[in-house]
Every structure is written in C-alpha cells, then in structure tokens.
Nucleic acid binder design. Sequence first.
DNA 1: ACTCCTTAGTTCGTGACACCAATTAAATTA
DNA 2: TAATTTAATTGGTGTCACGAACTAAGGAGT
Lengths: 154, 154
Amino acid sequence: MQNKPTAETAGADQDIEDLGLVDGLAQLSFLVQGVLGKVAAEHGLSVVQLRLLGVLRDRTPGMQELAHHLGLDKSSMTGLVDRAERRDLVRRTPSAHDRRSFLVSITPQGQQLARQCEVLADRQIRGLTAHLTDAQRARLSLLASALVNHHSPL
Amino acid sequence: MQNKPTAETAGADQDIEDLGLVDGLAQLSFLVQGVLGKVAAEHGLSVVQLRLLGVLRDRTPGMQELAHHLGLDKSSMTGLVDRAERRDLVRRTPSAHDRRSFLVSITPQGQQLARQCEVLADRQIRGLTAHLTDAQRARLSLLASALVNHHSPL
DNA sequence: ACTCCTTAGTTCGTGACACCAATTAAATTA
DNA sequence: TAATTTAATTGGTGTCACGAACTAAGGAGT
C-alpha cells in the first residue's frame, strides 16, 4: 500500500530510503537467507546443510570444531552431519590421533551439489545487485568482507 | 561457498581479503542472523518471532498478507501467530469486512519486547561495525537499504 | 435462489533443526 | 590407578516449515 518514493534524483545513488544500519542489515540478511534457502531447496537442501557443505569445501574439521564454527551445539552437529551423511554428501572419518573424534569431510557428491548451488546462488545474488553500479557492488563486497573477516577469527 | 578472488580494489582498507560478492553477503547474512538470534534468545524469542514483531511495527496485515510478506506458507503463519499470541505479543482481530480473515496486530507487550530487542540489536550490530569508519558504516547502511528497497515485494 | 469457484485460515502429519541434560568412551591429569 | 576433562551421541522438548485436506465465507453466473 505504499507508493514508490518518487524523488528521482540524478546521481549514482537513487531514491533510496535509508533503513538505518540495523534494519538495513537485518532485512538484507533475510533477503540473502531467502535466496540461499530457495537455491538450496531447489537441490533438496536446507540453508544449514548448504552452509555445512560450504564450510567443508576447504576444511576437514572435527564435530566439535565444526559446531563452534557454525555457532551450533554439538548435539545439533550430530543430527546435521547424520542427515548429510545419510545422503552421502558428507563423511565421517575416524581421527588418527584421537579415537573419540571424527573428521568430517565432504564427498564428491557433496562437492558437486555444492558447486551447483554456488553457481545458482551467484546468479541469484548478482540478480539482487543488478541495479547497483560495479563500483557499488565492489564496495558492498568489500564492506561485507570486512565485517566477516573481522568477526570470524578463524 | 568460498571463492578466493582477492584483488584489493580501491578501498582504503588494509588487510581485508575480499570474499567476493556472494560469499561476502552470504557470510554476512549468517553473521547478522547469528546476532539477531542471540538478541532474540535473550528475550525468549526466535529470530522469526522477532522478525514478525518487526514487521508488525508499522502494519496490521491479514494472515495471508503476512505470510506473503515473510515468504512463508499460510499454514506456517498459523503456527507462528499462534505461538506469539499465546505469549500476548500479538493479537488476532476479526476483520470488519471479511468474516473469514483476521488482522494481526502487535500488542503493547509485543511492542515493548520488540523495542528492547531493537536496542540490543542496535548495540550488537554497531559492535560488528565498530572497526568501520562512520562513512563506511553509512555507506553500508545505504547499500543494504538499496538492495532491500529494490527487492522487497511491497 | 442455487450451484460452482475462489479465498482465508486452520488442522494434521512429517521432517528439519536447535537446545539441554545425561551418557559413553577415550584422553589427560593427578 | 583414580579423577577429570574432552569428543561425540542419545533422548526429550520445542520451534519452524511445508503440503494436503478441510471448514467457512465471499463472489460470481446462469
């Protein structure tokens, strides 16, 4: 029920109503999660599973480590990995040094699926930013990276 | 979900590795969702409930409309509103024009809770961006708003 | 009126996901 | 060896999301 804000200013930035930092980032996160969810769903995955596969692309952590990285409880990890393993996306390998722990690795099938999702996600996300200039997209990418890099000490 | 095209483009920032647009936004969304989840949890809410309250700040939609706005199924809405109503955060009011439909509105308690979360979230999110300059924060806010404004089906 | 169709919400069943508390088993420490 | 810590699992509970089937009310159309 709202008309579009009209103010057709000329310039690099359009007639954007600033939502504020919190609302802006919050709503952006919902937007992105929605896209990821849709992409994942198209391949029978959930967002969390997709994230799991993403994390495992360049890591082979133990359950514990993985849980910490994802900000989840260990018991949540068990279920998550269970379900992924049941679909052969992921594998548990007994650790050589510690007979209690497993190393979680992605399977070829998991990699393939992850790559497919990546392509789709790239397309979709790029679609979200279609109305931005290249410079703006680059700035956004850098700012996002800056936040992430600063807050994922790993 | 990790690319590694590095390329330090024109950013006055130092040691930031650019994750790329997709990974950057994806990981940022996880980061923000994590913060929101933590904030919500501190008040006994889930992210979705918090979002619900957020949406109802300036709207009083019907179930259907609400579902569409949140990208959820109607049946999901029933449960969501049920749980929120059980906690007196939200209320169903029969529509005057259509005896089938309800208008969902936030209660004073819901508003209060939402506002508390907002304050907390503001603090946390601002914490995430503590290492940015004011200008960068403003730019980020604007870019996020630009994406959201452009892609919110409203 | 009286069918036919659509729309608004709910209910039901299923499954994913998350947490906590308690448990098993291996490693560490004392 | 005994005590403690650590890695992971199990079991129980609750949220959340979906699809399919359902009720009830609105709107045609003839």
